[in-house]
C-alpha cells in the first residue's frame, strides 16, 4: 500500500514538474514561433513575385520591411470586386478570397498573388501562385508546406520544379481560361506545341501528386477567375483607385 502511494506521488510530482516546464517554454517561445511562421509566409509571397532570390539569404527584418513596402493584402468577393473586409465578414455565406498585390513605388500593380491551399497525395499542399498584371502569365510559384513523399512528390518544393511555372499561361491562345496542368513527364515530349504554354514538366514517379496539384490549381484559379478577368481587362492597374474604393 505504501509503495503504491509512493509511486503515485512520484508520478504526480514528475508530471507537475514536466508539465509546468513545458507550459512555460511553450508560452515563452510562442511569439517567436508565430513570428517565424509569418515571416516564412511573407518570404514565400515575396519569392513568388520574384522579389526574393533562392540563393540569397535575408534577415527576418529585411523580409518584413520588404513585405510591408511592396505587398498589400486585399480581399475580393465572388464577382472579383475589391471589398472592405470589415463590412462583409458579417454576411454569412458570402465568399471572400484574399489576394496579395505587388504594388510598385508608382502605385501600379505589377502582379497579384493567389494563396494555394489544396489537397496533395498525402496531406495539404500550401503555397502561393503569382500572376502578372495581364491576368494570365504566371510570375512565380512557391510551396511552403506539404507532406508529399520525399524524393518523389516532395520534389514540388524544389526550385527546378517551381521555376517551371514562370512564364506559363493560364489561358489558351484565344484568351479563354484553361488553368495550368502538370504534365506527365517532360512538356516538350508529351504535349502538342500549341498547348505547351499551359503545362509544366511533371515529376517522374509522382504522377499522383501532379494530378492532385493540377486539380487544386484548376479549382483555386477558377474561383479567382473573376479577379483575373478584371486584370485582363485592365481594370486593376492602379493601387490608388483600389484604395479609394475600399474606403
Amino acid at each position: 500500500m505504501f509503495n503504491r502511494i509512493k509511486s503515485l506521488l512520484f508520478a504526480l510530482v514528475l508530471c507537475l514538474i514536466c508539465g509546468s516546464l513545458l507550459a512555460f517554454a511553450s508560452k515563452g517561445l510562442k511569439n517567436r514561433q508565430q513570428d517565424n511562421i509569418t515571416t516564412d509566409r511573407q518570404k514565400n509571397i515575396l519569392k513568388s513575385v520574384g522579389l526574393i532570390k533562392e540563393e540569397m539569404t535575408y534577415t527576418p527584418d529585411q523580409i518584413k520591411t520588404l513585405f510591408i513596402d511592396t505587398i498589400k493584402r486585399v480581399s475580393v468577393d465572388e464577382a472579383g470586386r475589391i471589398i472592405d473586409e470589415k463590412e462583409n465578414t458579417e454576411i454569412p455565406g458570402s465568399k471572400i478570397f484574399p489576394i496579395y498585390l505587388y504594388v510598385q513605388s508608382d502605385d501600379s500593380i505589377a502582379a497579384y498573388v493567389i494563396p494555394i491551399d489544396t489537397k496533395g497525395l498525402w496531406g495539404k499542399i500550401h503555397g502561393y501562385l503569382s500572376l502578372g498584371n495581364d491576368g494570365s502569365t504566371i510570375n512565380g510559384f512557391t510551396i511552403y508546406k506539404h507532406s508529399e513523399t520525399p524524393g518523389l512528390g516532395g520534389e514540388i518544393e524544389k526550385t527546378w520544379f517551381q521555376q517551371n511555372f514562370v512564364g506559363k499561361k493560364i489561358v489558351d491562345r484565344h484568351g479563354a481560361f484553361v488553368s495550368l496542368s502538370i504534365a506527365r513527364g517532360k512538356v516538350e515530349n508529351n504535349i502538342p506545341e500549341d498547348r505547351r504554354k499551359n503545362y509544366v514538366d511533371g515529376i517522374s514517379g509522382a504522377t499522383l501528386t501532379g494530378k492532385f496539384l493540377t486539380e487544386g490549381l484548376k479549382e483555386t484559379l477558377s474561383s479567382y477567375e473573376p479577379v483575373s478577368i478584371r486584370f485582363r481587362k485592365n481594370n486593376f492597374r492602379d493601387y490608388k483607385q483600389i484604395e479609394k474604393k475600399q474606403r
Binding site: L21, A25, L29, Q33, N36, T39, D40
Partner: peptide, 20 residues
C-alpha cells in the same frame, strides 16, 4: 515522460530559432 519533455523542449527551441 522525462525523455518526451526534453524532446518537446528541443522541438520548441528549434521552431523558435531555426525555423527552416
Amino acid at each position: 515522460i522525462i525523455i518526451a519533455t526534453l524532446v518537446i523542449l528541443t522541438d520548441e527551441f528549434l521552431r523558435a530559432f531555426y525555423y527552416d
